[in-house]
Amino acid sequence: MTRQPALTEIAAQVDQLHRIAQELYDRSEDFPALNRNLKRILASIHMLRINLEEDAD
């Protein structure tokens, strides 16, 4: 494990964020305004993951 502890913690919180956004997205099929905004949020969260990605996790 090579990553700084703070980044590991942030990455774990991003994973939580992703889990919540994904759950909401999966339940939003009848609510376009939520569905499409959640889709964007998921893309932003994925970008957070790319920004924190390391080789060893």
């Binding site: 889709k39 964007r40 893309a43 932003s44 994925h46 970008m47 790319i50 920004n51």
Partner: peptide, 11 residues
């Protein structure tokens, strides 16, 4: 591009 790709491109 998907919206995800677009996020990445602008990043």
């Amino acid at each position: 591009d998907t919206w995800q790709d677009w996020e990445w491109f602008s990043e």
